[in-house]
Amino acid sequence: MRMSKIVRFSADVLFGAILIFGFYIILHGHLTPGGGFQGGAVVATGAALVIVAYSYEEVLHMIKKAGLMLQESAGLVMFAGVALIALGLGTTFFFNYLANSGLLFGMSVPFGPNPGELNTGGVLPLMNIAVGIEVWGGLAIVILYMLSGISKAEEA
């Protein structure tokens, strides 16, 4: 079962815009309100729009379940791995070892109100990206599994 042509066309058009907005929220998580969880939920909303608009067989051609599962696991492993590297460097767990270091995301920030710079934050942007990938995969695969359940129930 699929929805009407109007719904499918709107889903196709809106999917790209929602995706770009979600990536913006994830990547600017250390500058503007939002972060990994919020941005990942926005991206998963775009995926849910496509999943609701199309039938189960068409969705399976667009999105792979194993890919989403791998994405979710990779996000959690990346999040824990970034935190574990700090232990290898001889500091505490979750220590922000990249902040003020001059390396990747390593610029300093002056105190008080300032316009902000994308290349700051230390490990925080990496963790935002990791959590964003995880939440995206996790919430999308929940909706996909529910769609697969009802498509089986329709046939019976």
């Binding site: 309100p33 939002g34 939920a41 909303t45 999943i51 609701v52 919430l139 909706i143 009802i150």
Partner: peptide
């Protein structure tokens, strides 16, 4: 604003999608 983004994405987006899937079946 953080909570507002979460609520808009999960409450208004994902929950409604799950409801629509349930109504479709």
């Amino acid at each position: 604003p953080d909570v507002a983004i979460s609520q808009a994405a999960i409450g208004a987006g994902l929950t409604t999608a799950i409801f629509i899937l349930a109504i479709r079946s």
